[in-house]
């Protein structure tokens, strides 16, 4: 251009080598990329305990229950165990039948939330699937009992029965 000295002319960089590098790396990384994220769910199984001091009276926990959720062919059966009276424990229990031949996880989550509101110190749920229950059903039941998502966008959750014990009926 007239008026611009030779030293002020813009320098054209050779972008071809770096483009080649990018074009080689992107397909390789795309091949290795995972388009889903794997997480884990903690689970435990019932354990034998030695039995503590028999002479000492155990302290009664009236705000805590252990929930049992049986996954049957017709739906869920809920029962509870704890230091409460038998009548009170019976009131907690109940059945959630299948809806359109599908397990009603929403209703189970609602019921679990109501129980947890009443007994806020509770954290243990024993899951009792039938031998033909699919693993997917077990995971969904764990989800329904473990926590409730309050706001998906803000990722706020309410913890319910976080300690899941997987057991089976003999």
């Amino acid at each position: 251009m007239p008026g611009i000295r030779e030293s002020e002319k813009p320098v054209n960089l050779n972008m071809v080598p770096i483009m080649n590098l990018f074009l080689a790396m992107i397909p390789f990384l795309l091949m290795c990329a995972a388009f889903f994220q794997v997480s884990v769910i903690n689970a435990s199984v019932p354990a034998l305990s030695e039995g503590g001091d028999q002479d000492q009276e155990p302290k009664k926990e009236l705000k805590k229950v252990t929930l049992n959720v049986q996954i049957g062919t017709n739906g869920f059966t809920i029962s509870a165990s704890g230091d409460q009276s038998e009548d009170e424990l019976k009131k907690i229990g109940g059945t959630i039948p299948k809806k359109n031949n599908q397990y009603d996880f929403d209703k189970l989550a609602e019921r679990i939330k109501a129980i947890h509101d009443h007994y806020p110190k509770s954290d243990t749920v024993i899951l009792l699937p039938g031998k033909d229950t699919l693993y997917d059903t077990l995971v969904k039941t764990m989800d329904a009992t473990r926590e409730r998502i309050l706001d998906k966008r803000l990722d706020t959750r309410e913890h319910l029965f976080t300690n899941a014990v997987v057991s089976s009926i003999l």
Binding site: F36, Q37, V38, S39, V40, I41, N42, A43, S44, V45, A47, V139, M142, I149, K152, R153, D155, V166
Partner: peptide, 13 residues
């Protein structure tokens, strides 16, 4: 004796 079940994290959770 400790188990972790691998699952696919649902979008938005």
């Amino acid at each position: 004796g400790q188990y972790k079940f691998a699952v696919i994290k649902t979008q938005g959770s």
